[in-house]
Amino acid sequence: MSLKVSPEFPVGLDVNWEPSDKVALSDPYLKNWLLDTGSLTERVQALCRHFSLVKLGQGTKALHASETALLNATANSEWQVREVLLCADNEPWVYARSVIPQSLIDDELANLGTEPLGKRLFNDPRFARSDFHLCQATPEALSRLNMDITDTLWGRRSLFSFQESRMIVAEVFLPDAPAYESRYRYGR
């Protein structure tokens, strides 16, 4: 798939995160998307004819302060940042940023390539997911996506634990995502 845009890796997601129970969400449809504990990849796949994953990049990158704090990362920890777009019928619906310990990249998550991370996480019961944190990402926070984003977008993140390892999976619903369907349908 070729995108109409060329995002810069790493895009980053340096935003304020709040526990989901502290965020007032008046839109039940959006809330359902943000708090769905199933595989987001499978949900997107079920709603389109052609699913694709565009890997923006993966490598050793600096972590945001909130990521370091959530992971209890130390100066000698090794992490890889992986950023992708989940696309439905050639339209980007989700921007995802994962922070993965190098040890998992070397073992359980080796050779991911353009395979969705969720495919591995949700097919392996050894991975446990935490509660969600939510954010509102401004167009400025997502400027490196190089997309025409004019509204503040919603995102979520959670920790996945595997034995002694922990990793962050964060996802932001992009403007064309069906998570905002009620906004378009009812003019909100």
Score class of each variant (00 low, 15 high):
residue 158 S to E: 08
residue 78 E to Y: 11
residue 170 A to I: 07
residue 76 N to P: 00
residue 40 L to D: 02
residue 90 N to V: 02
residue 16 N to A: 12
residue 27 D to E: 13
residue 27 D to L: 08
residue 66 S to I: 07
residue 133 H to G: 00
residue 159 L to D: 03
residue 47 L to F: 06
residue 30 L to C: 09
residue 41 T to P: 03
residue 23 V to K: 08
residue 23 V to C: 11
residue 71 L to C: 07
residue 28 P to L: 05
residue 68 T to H: 02
residue 6 S to P: 00
residue 114 T to E: 15
residue 100 I to Y: 09
residue 173 F to K: 04
residue 89 D to W: 00
residue 94 V to F: 01
residue 135 C to T: 15
residue 47 L to I: 01
residue 40 L to K: 06
residue 69 A to R: 12
residue 79 W to F: 15
residue 175 P to R: 00
residue 134 L to N: 08
residue 117 L to Y: 01
residue 158 S to G: 02
residue 13 L to R: 13
residue 103 S to T: 11
residue 88 A to Q: 03
residue 10 P to L: 13
residue 135 C to N: 06
residue 167 M to Q: 06
residue 106 D to L: 15
residue 35 L to D: 04
residue 117 L to G: 01
residue 165 S to K: 11
residue 53 L to S: 04
residue 176 D to V: 02
residue 14 D to N: 15
residue 90 N to C: 09
residue 88 A to R: 01
residue 170 A to D: 11
residue 100 I to S: 06
residue 182 S to P: 01
residue 121 L to S: 07
residue 138 T to V: 09
residue 56 L to F: 09
residue 126 R to V: 03
residue 145 L to F: 08
residue 85 L to M: 09
residue 148 D to Q: 15
residue 55 K to S: 14
residue 19 P to M: 09
residue 147 M to C: 07
residue 118 G to R: 02
residue 38 G to F: 02
residue 93 W to N: 11
residue 70 L to M: 13
residue 12 G to S: 09
residue 110 A to S: 12
residue 30 L to P: 12
residue 163 Q to L: 08
residue 84 V to D: 07
residue 185 R to L: 15
residue 85 L to Y: 08
residue 96 A to Y: 05
residue 99 V to K: 05
residue 9 F to G: 04
residue 7 P to A: 09
residue 130 S to G: 07
residue 30 L to H: 11
residue 105 I to Q: 10
residue 6 S to V: 03
residue 175 P to D: 05
residue 96 A to I: 01
residue 93 W to F: 06
residue 27 D to W: 10
residue 12 G to M: 05
residue 184 Y to V: 01
residue 45 Q to N: 05
residue 71 L to A: 07
residue 87 C to N: 12
